[in-house]
Design a protein around this nucleic acid. Structure first.
Lengths: 145, 145
DNA sequence: GTTGAAATCCTCTGGTG
DNA sequence: CACCAGAGGATTTCAAC
């Protein structure tokens, strides 16, 4: 069976909920919090890693403190004519360092990007100089968090 | 001066870009990749942690593999009448385990939430049973990635 | 002030009961 | 699953640039 949902018990859920926001919590501290010894905690962390439930460990960066003060949600609609526009579009935006995150919405030609730049001027030059020039882009709409 | 932008050199940028996607990379491996020894790498990791540039370390969970197959972006507009609705609303949604992420948009009464549930039925019951009942919620719109 | 190397300390992991 | 021992990595200290 494909797409099988692994059996997860109360301990696994507690561990995942801790790791979701505090990866650096030591195995020992987790074991004390949930009432287990270190060994099974270590095993219960490794299993979701191998199963691909934990896709990766990421450091969340406060872009504003680095001078990336402008953060924008950009909705992009793609041209319906171009057949391989999705793959091409995704490849293109992955090369843009300004794109922090992106999601493909239902309808399959509608993306939402989160874009971070140092200033509104940088954002606008990214928009007109780079994003609008990607093949297949039909229309763009921005909203600022 | 408030909001000062720290001086970041080439090494810091390289370290941050590694940590952004691969936190578990050892200090030794980072030092080999960027051509520095372990000591300065360790210090250059701690500094952005203390400055709040690295806000937290997070394990990214594949919700689909846990059976949370439905992931939805929800736009919520808040009622303009209620003065403290922002704080109340944020407090409320932080208690909802279904809310994976949320952002406050410009206009100050417009939130975007990312919601993950096990099924569309669960999502709908979350929507009508919990989210719409939060004080100050004026209107809701959903879009599915 | 920052680096580089060695010593210390801490934490993870594999084996045993 | 708990306990214990070995191993690997991170952090502190100190000398040098």
């Amino acid at each position: 069976m494909v797409g099988n949902i692994p059996k997860i018990d109360k301990f696994d859920i507690e561990i995942l909920s801790i790791l979701r926001t505090e990866v650096r919590t030591s195995v020992l501290e987790i074991s004390e919090r949930i009432g287990l010894s270190a060994t099974p905690v270590s095993r219960r962390i490794r299993r979701p890693e191998e199963q691909g439930i934990i896709t990766r460990y990421a450091a969340l960066i406060d872009e504003a403190k680095l001078g990336y003060e402008v953060s924008v949600f950009v909705s992009v609609k793609l041209d319906k004519q171009v057949d391989d526009s999705l793959a091409a579009f995704e490849a293109a935006i992955q090369d843009f360092s300004e794109v922090v995150d992106f999601w493909l919405m239902t309808g399959n030609r509608d993306y939402v990007l989160r874009v971070a730049t140092r200033s509104l001027a940088d954002f606008e030059s990214f928009l007109v100089g780079r994003l609008t020039r990607v093949r297949g882009v039909a229309s763009i709409e921005s909203s600022i968090p």
